[in-house]
Design a protein around this nucleic acid. Structure first.
Length: 157
RNA sequence: CGGGUCAGACAGACGAUCGCCCCGCGCAAGCGUGGGAGGAAAGUCCGAACACCGUUCCUUGGAGCAAUCCUUGGUUCAUGGAGAGCCGUUAACGACGGCCAGGGUAUACCGAGAUCGUUAGGCCACGCGAGACGUAAAUCCUCAUUUCGACCUGUUUCAACCGCAAGGCUGAAACCGCCGUUCACUCGGCACCGGUCCCAAUGACAUUUACAUCCCGCGCCCCACCUUCGCUCGCAAGCCUAGGGAAAGUGCCACAGAGACAAUACUAAUCUUCGAAGCGCAAGCCUCGUUGAUGAAAAGUGAAAAGUGAUGCGGUGUGGGUCCCGUCGCAAGACGCCGAUCUGCUACACAUCUCCGCCAGCGGCAACGCUGGUGCGCGGCAAACCCUCUCCGGUGCAAGAGCAAGUCUUCAACUUCGGUUGAAGGAUGGUCGCUCGCCAGAGCGUGUCAGCAAUGACCCGCCCAGAUAGAUGAUCGCCGCUCCUCCGUUUCGCUUCUUGAGACUCCGGUCUCUCGACGCUUCAACGCUGGAGAACAAAAUUCGGCUUAUCGUCUGGUCCGAACA
RNA sequence: GGGUGCGUGGUGUAGCCCGGUUAACACGUCUCCCUGUCACGGAGAAGACCGAGGGUUCGAAUCCCUUCGCACCCG
């Protein structure tokens, strides 16, 4: 694991980054960055449970990304929050290529953040995303979804 | 040796470099012979530990004048949910072990049975069919031989000559007879080679018939068996069972069937009331409709059809047949019925066997089993509603506890009167941070003892993950495993050549054994080159079960196949 | 950590609660007709053992249990 000050830890931060973070797409993973002002910079690694059903593959993807990122830790300037979102190619890729790809992403990250956002943030996909999106944008919390109607209402009561 | 199946165990090893989490030491930097995912960690189908929060009724102790509050230990919740053969194991369970009952398969052992039999045999006896062999007779199909007779006379090749050619002619030879004759194989005769046909005889074979023997098959009978085998039934391993109650009630039971559980509504049948039509001289008969009664036996339907079922005897009632008798009728015949006789069904009673329930006795801890008595005796479904008995309060480690900052209140000090600082508080708490809960446990391993077993007790030894966006990764080395592949060695087999020995011989050789050489090659072992593969899947409070996923390796049991003994 | 729903022809759904011939409907597919041709239209046909495995019952898509897969909700 990374040293504790460098870890991105709270669910709120992950949700904020997935909405407001500037995405940069690499061949193996997606880097989302946001200038938060926290010193030192905080980094998180994500593997979606929806894309990767097995816990073994999720763990493997996060480990490989973290190990590939580790040499670049001293070079990251302070003041940023970063998350790396893994894609399926991480499992089968060559480790050296993965490391070069992450280095390239980090290199162009500060420049990219200076340019203005051209596209509006995407709408959230999951319910957790909806709640975090509401907190981040200041709108109202979404109401509970109604569960499915029972088949025989009279008997269900 | 190979394969299937069941049970159990394992889930590659060692090392290097860069890194991660925990632990220990150290003020710290850091250091270290330290530790670091599973059998399912998974699914969440059950059960518990642990923690907090209720509710009913009591209870222990304390504070307070009291109301009341705090506290200790028990108890209760029932509109709801769960369980259901018995005993045991366990912290507990729907798990596990043993047993009981029921279902059900193979069909071993044992027992029994007979409207059973394409078994085999014994005993007695017969017929039919086929076959073999023998004897006798007959027949003609076939073949062979012999004999009699009839018919058949040229064909082919070569050579010479003539012709333009087609062809002619002559001769020779072969098939081939001879004599005479003719232009001429033209004719005649003889003989009969040859061919064809026919008749007869003989023989062989065959066929048919008769007889005898043997054997086989089939059928029938005697049959009374006996033995054996098969068959059926009982008992019955493994296996399966959510396995209380259908004599508490409600509901459902499609189609079919009169009827699916208070249904005799309809229908058939019998008797009967009334009416109508027809037949008959009449008595009366018959048909249709209708009133009421009896009424489910048989048959049929269906998964399932009532007085538990079966048998025997007695017996009541009733139906039918025959005889006799009576009435009507000329007769044929019709109707009635005392009696006699035969017969069908049967209320009821008795006896025996049997199912079920209940009671008693005996055995068993019990489920239950056996025996006896008795008769409150109406199908199925409760994984339909339900009834009986038993158990269950709820929430879940994001449970919950603490620390600190913060807020509030009080007090003190200072003050520029705005406040600041400090202390205290059994006050407050959906942010954030930290600690505990949280890894020494229903723990693991060896052994002994108890028990049929599940399991338990004891001794000794061991420490073996505790993260919190969540620790095992990356780059390699080497060895091992499985599969494929290159090459080599050994072994086995084969071809060719060869050494020696033996046997046979038609003297040419052939066969068997054996030493050796070259070559080819299946399988196996070993060495070796290169390549591929190595599953299912990762803790999140912790355990016990269940279920599901899983490349392979090993061990044991069992079954099948092949080879050898 | 708790909880819910759904698996039925190629596709989307009925049927299930309250068991009963041969599982219904629409679209799609195929064949024929119509048209000069295509479409539309008309006539007809094929296509399912109800996710899997057990059990209860005379009888199971339906009831019960186990299991697999999919979708979803709350914290």
């Amino acid at each position: 694991m990374l040293p504790k000050p460098h870890r991105l830890r709270h669910e709120r931060d992950f949700a904020k980054l997935s909405v407001k973070g500037r995405p940069m797409y690499g061949p193996f993973c997606v880097l989302r960055a946001w200038k938060s002002g926290s010193t030192p910079s905080k980094i998180g690694f994500v593997a979606s449970g929806k894309m990767f059903k097995k816990a073994v593959t999720r763990n493997l993807i996060r480990r490989r990304m973290r190990e590939a990122f580790r040499p670049f830790l001293p070079t990251v300037p302070p003041g940023y929050d970063l998350i790396f979102v893994g894609r399926p190619e991480v499992i089968t890729s060559d480790f050296v290529a993965l490391r070069e790809s992450i280095g390239h992403l980090l290199e162009k990250m500060p420049k990219e953040l200076e340019r203005p956002m051209t596209r509006p943030p995407k709408s959230p996909r999951s319910r957790r995303g909806e709640i975090a999106y509401a907190k981040a944008t200041g709108t109202e919390r979404p109401t509970k979804r109604t569960p499915l109607e029972p088949r025989y209402p009279e008997q269900a009561k």
